[in-house]
């Protein structure tokens, strides 16, 4: 509320260069495991400004609505349901999706959990194994509006969106979007990018490998994310609402 503009100005710089010092990012952490939440906050509090924390869906929604942070880190499994509920609820109009970004944090590597969160509108997802510095870098990426793909998430998405191969996700979650030809497939380039991500390459290394810029790699991952989110009916409405209003 208090500082609406500086972050937007800093977007391009930070996207190119994660190390750039930009105004402190305002972050909210939602996780029901208090010890873990403490650990996350301790690990990142020197680099970002943790403005709020919450431990369930309801308080998460309230805290994020109240603080309008740059990044909200949301646990996938909360006591009263999936963290995706928070994102869905807030994207109904309580937060500006161009300003507040969501990052999933999960102990689960179940494809369904991961996909649900990403589809609900998270810019990415990291596992709880992530180290403090990596988490800060990820937060910066997310704040810059980029998609964050861990190798695991890339694998999950490849399994989900590559129509040819067997998918590990139960049919129920994949059935809705298979009618839509655009959502069904990744472009060959997007596929390549995801494969390299799954192989453990960084964005920079992918750029070198494919002879494109890291920025282009980012635009590919963002477009994959968009395809994923558009394939979610909820996300589709959010998207439409947003674009009609702009």
């Amino acid at each position: 509320m208090t500082t609406p503009s500086p972050n937007n100005n800093g977007l391009d710089d930070t996207a190119q260069n994660g190390e750039a010092k930009h105004p402190q990012l305002r972050v909210v952490v939602v996780d029901d495991h208090s010890l873990f939440r403490r650990g996350v906050i301790d690990a990142i509090k020197d680099k970002v400004n943790v403005v709020g924390e919450a431990d369930d869906i309801k308080s998460g929604i309230d805290v994020i609505r109240q603080h309008q942070p740059d990044v909200a880190i949301i646990d996938v499994q909360l006591p009263s349901g999936s963290g995706a509920r928070i994102i869905e609820a807030l994207l109904q109009g309580s937060v500006d999706p161009e300003r507040t970004r969501f990052l999933g944090l999960s102990v689960s590597e179940e494809p369904t959990d991961v996909l649900e969160l990403v589809r609900s509108g998270a810019r990415g997802y990291v596992t709880k194994r992530i180290q403090g510095d990596d988490l800060v870098a990820t937060i910066e990426q997310v704040a810059a509006g980029n998609a964050v793909f861990s190798p695991r998430l890339a694998g999950v998405v490849l399994n989900e969106l590559s129509g040819k191969t067997t998918t590990t996700v139960p049919a129920s979650s994949g059935a809705a979007e298979s009618d839509d030809p655009e959502m069904q497939s990744l472009s060959p380039r997007e596929r390549e990018v995801l494969q390299l991500l799954a192989r453990g390459y960084t964005y920079k290394e992918i750029g070198v490998e494919l002879h494109i810029s890291a920025r282009t790699v980012e635009s590919h991952t963002s477009s994959v994310l968009r395809k994923l989110q558009l394939s979610n009916r909820h996300a589709l409405t959010h998207w439409a609402v947003r674009h009609n209003m702009i």
Partner: peptide
């Protein structure tokens, strides 16, 4: 510290990648 193993099945091709840093 980390070794990446990625394998994919694509039509009738199977590929595996083992990468370390």
């Amino acid at each position: 510290p980390l070794i990446s193993l990625y394998a994919e099945v694509d039509d009738n091709l199977v590929r595996a990648f083992v990468r370390d840093r």
